[in-house]
Write a protein that binds this DNA or RNA. Structure first.
Lengths: 135, 135
DNA sequence: TGCATAACCTATTAATCCTATAGGTTAATA
DNA sequence: TATTAACCTATAGGATTAATAGGTTATGCA
């Protein structure tokens, strides 16, 4: 299951992506349009800025804006930043790999092989969608 | 991410699937072979019995055994019973649907459409794998 | 009949993670 | 100089997960 954080983050990015111009949009405006707690969204947007998706401007007329074009932002990278691993088990994660304690040999693990298939099919979908495809 | 419960449950089912005969296997034997806490596994196997995957026999020589043939057990149904929804958001779940509070219209929701794609690709993988495919 | 065995069941804990809020600081604008 | 809105840290409350404890019931066997 996607966390609320990820879901809200995607919605916020999509909201910014459909803006007619590149003017900064305030947290409160995104929050009210997408029915998100403004304070919670604040921390999410801050994350997205720190990870290079958003730029920001302080003070009156300030807000957040997309740094790259929507069609250049892959959903794989968005989800990895907001949610973490895309894989369903750490031992098949490409970006967040962790060995299983209970699993002596990954090659013979029944779960492992199945979860690689799931991971690859999910990566295929998310890697073929950008922010521009969400609207 | 898959819960430990689901992961252990799949491993246990796969362990039973590769037994040469249909004799009951004790919880403790599965637990030690798969490096799972015996007590924790106990509750998982109980779940799997109640949901119709396993039969059980009490007393000496007792244990758990598969009711159906491994090739008849779809991984979709296994995961739905152990983990719950396969979808990443409740609003695209086929078996555990729930409306989003923050989302006035699913058809125009940016997350919705993407998550339907992810769901379908995952269903495709899990629906084409049975317990027999795991070994 | 009675003992050993292993499933069955309920409750509870400890730990972790998620969601959200509070309250203040900094920088930009007018 | 006042207002605005991003920035930052801490924390609370809740939910969920992983695991343990401790007992009950049913079966097989001597």
């Amino acid at each position: 299951m996607l966390s609320k954080k990820t879901k809200y983050g995607i919605k916020a990015l999509a909201f910014l992506a459909k803006q007619p111009d590149k003017n900064p949009v305030q947290t409160s405006e995104i929050a009210s349009n997408e029915n998100i707690s403004s304070k919670f969204l604040e921390s999410i947007l801050l994350d997205l800025r720190k990870s290079g998706f958003l730029g920001s401007k302080k003070g009156k007329g300030g807000g957040y804006y997309l740094i790259k074009k929507p069609e250049e932002i892959l959903m794989t990278s968005v989800i990895r930043v907001l949610e973490g691993p895309i894989a369903m088990v750490p031992c098949v994660s490409l970006n967040y790999y962790e060995k299983c304690i209970d699993c002596p040999d990954e090659d013979t693990c029944s779960v492992h092989k199945l979860m690689i298939q799931v991971r690859d099919s999910t990566l295929n979908v998310l890697g073929n969608n950008t922010l521009a495809d969400l609207s």
